[in-house]
């Protein structure tokens, strides 16, 4: 199954929603910056994770959503259950 709409249709129909999502994101980051101790937050693990997630949005698609999901995921170790009873 493929998309039912053209890319241009999707862009025109969803433009305001996407604009709103970007604004929400920008306002959320501003909120962190306005808080006390903002100068020391850049090295915080969660801040780095957010920054990495933002970087992924600039990559070519499709597949960005899955990449962002994996970016925020624990590592899986192949063979973790080998040798268990």
């Amino acid at each position: 199954m493929t998309a039912t709409r053209t890319s241009q249709d999707i862009l025109e129909q969803d433009f305001l929603k996407i604009r709103c999502l970007i604004l929400d994101l920008a306002a959320s980051l501003d909120r962190i910056d306005r808080g006390e101790g903002a100068d020391h937050i850049a090295d915080h693990e969660q801040m780095k994770l957010l920054q990495g997630g933002l970087d992924l949005l600039k990559e070519d698609g499709p597949g960005r959503a899955a990449k962002v999901q994996l970016h925020f995921s624990d590592q899986y170790e192949e063979g973790w259950n080998e040798g268990e009873d």
Binding site: Q69, F72, S73, D74, Q75, Y76, W80, N81
Partner: peptide, 18 residues
């Protein structure tokens, strides 16, 4: 539901395959 979903799903499939 969150950061543990991918790892947990892989582990679940591994255990079902046992």
């Amino acid at each position: 539901h969150l950061w543990d979903k991918y790892k947990g799903t892989r582990m679940i499939i591994d255990m079902i395959k046992e």
